[in-house]
Amino acid sequence: MSIIKTFKNGLLKENPIFIQLLGMCPTLAVTTTATDGLAMGLATTTVLVSANLVVSLLRKLIPSKIRIPSYIVIIATFVTLIDMFMHAYAIDLYRSLGLFIPLIVVNCLILGRAESFASKNTPVRAISDGLGMGIGFAWALTLLGSVRELLGAGSIFGISVFGEAFKPAIIMILPPGAFLALGILVGIYNWLSKKRAANA
């Protein structure tokens, strides 16, 4: 697979959220607004790309018997870095994402890419895979956050859309709304990709 193809793979065809259904905990928990979804997506992308790069660089050094603890240490290091820098330079975002930044460590998407891709490929391709998967994760999270914010708060990226008369459905920004929105979006996504496959 070429580098470009590797990159595009994560965007649509193997989208981490809509197709692979990986990393569901942050997906469901932090997508109450479009901003939070985007921020979480970008933070995850940063960790994913960095972890992929380092794992790929060290792939010959790390014996397979201790690969999992090694990957976790590498991932946890990057997550802690993000956590510290966000706390220092983006305190509002840090407050609203709260607990979920440290939880990026256990996002199975990142360990999954390290294990199944980065540990077997060159650094350049590992970066391109991390970018593809990360951006795929980020846009899906942003979409989910937008849908929930739009229906649940009547705004998008904090900007009011419908005006005063609109009575937002609060359930959409509560946990059940996350499941409802995700389920329906996954359904639509698969329906669209099936239709595209049939047309092609």
Binding site: K167, P168, A169, I170, I171, M172, L174, P176
Partner: peptide
């Protein structure tokens, strides 16, 4: 249940 969670006041 959905309506009650969405529009508790109404």
């Amino acid at each position: 249940a959905m309506l009650l969670a969405s529009w508790p006041v109404i």
